[in-house]
């Protein structure tokens, strides 16, 4: 029996984490595997740190796992990568968007945003991949598709690209007027890694 794979998304409320993890889950379902995912809503979304998990395999019981059990962590923001890196297994994969969003204590000058995040992430026993998904999304003409750029990169990194037609899955998950740009974002993400 193939072991369960676990993906975690981390980021800041409003970055589009829920959509990215739902599209991933939908694609996996179409591929015929068992999927469970978990999200936190409410208070956690008002500009706070947000995480979701998607677990898939032959038989998945728990949508939630604790530290040390995630195969791939996708962080839409650098500081959040540092905050949740300990959820990764040894030699797990860390996909990070090169984006810095200052949190409140940083905005008010109480603390400074760490300058050495990428160096610190590189020192951990994980396989690190940093991309600039925001720049890519802007290049495509819509900064909001940053999440789908990362989804594309994730699909490639996780070896899921051939599993289903991800274009079809993405196309059905977004509004018609944004279909085109999201498909280009998915493709761009796949070619970034």
């Amino acid at each position: 029996m193939a072991p369960t794979k676990r993906v975690m998304f981390a980021g800041v409320g409003g970055q589009g984490i829920l959509l990215a993890s739902r599209v991933l889950a939908e694609g996996l379902i179409r591929a015929g595997v068992d999927v469970k995912s978990t999200e936190v809503h409410g208070m956690a979304q008002r500009g706070g740190s947000v995480v979701t998990q998607v677990c898939f395999g032959e038989r998945v019981y728990s949508p939630l796992v604790g530290p040390g059990a995630i195969d791939i962590l996708v962080s839409l923001e650098k500081l959040e990568a540092l905050r949740y890196v300990h959820f990764l297994k040894r030699n797990g994969t860390l996909l990070v968007n090169r984006r810095e969003i200052p949190s409140l204590p940083v905005l008010t000058g109480a603390v400074t945003y760490p300058r050495d995040i990428e160096e610190r992430l590189a020192s951990f026993p994980v396989s690190l991949c940093v991309i600039d998904a925001d720049r890519e999304a802007e290049r495509l003409g819509n900064p909001r598709v940053m999440n789908v750029v990362l989804l594309g990169a994730l699909v490639r990194l996780a070896g899921l690209a051939g599993l289903v037609d991800w274009k079809e899955v993405v196309a059905e998950a977004v509004r018609p007027q944004y279909r085109e740009v999201n498909l280009r974002a998915l493709d761009a993400g796949m070619h970034l890694v």
């Binding site: 706070g48 300990h86 040894r90």
Partner: peptide
């Protein structure tokens, strides 16, 4: 596995 990283700025709602 990686230890939780201490002393990073909080991100409260």
């Amino acid at each position: 596995a990686v230890e939780p990283v201490a002393g990073i700025p909080a991100r409260p709602p």
